[in-house]
């Protein structure tokens, strides 16, 4: 569980910071946005999902203990 939490915590940083060299382009335009802007917007949703999952794990853990 702890490993999973670490992965979920680091994933948004890898996506929004680590992957920038590969996302730095205008095309393809996705959802009307230049690719770099789309990448960051997708990163926002990813951070939301990861935090949601971590919160779920944490509250389950609290219930058990």
């Amino acid at each position: 569980m702890k490993t999973l939490k670490i992965i979920l915590t680091l994933l948004p940083f890898v996506w929004s910071i680590g992957m920038i060299p590969f996302a730095n382009k205008v095309h393809p335009i996705v959802l009307g946005l230049p690719f770099l802007a789309f990448w960051f917007v997708a990163g926002i949703f990813l951070a939301f999902l990861c935090l949601q999952a971590i919160y779920f794990i944490d509250s389950k853990h609290r219930q058990n203990s």
Binding site: P12, L36, A37, F40, A47
Partner: peptide, 20 residues
């Protein structure tokens, strides 16, 4: 232009830090 998009990036990451 492009460098502005950094503004979309930091908030979400900051909340991950804030969560802990």
């Amino acid at each position: 232009g492009g460098p502005t998009f950094y503004i979309l990036g930091y908030g979400a990451l900051a909340y991950v830090v804030g969560y802990y």
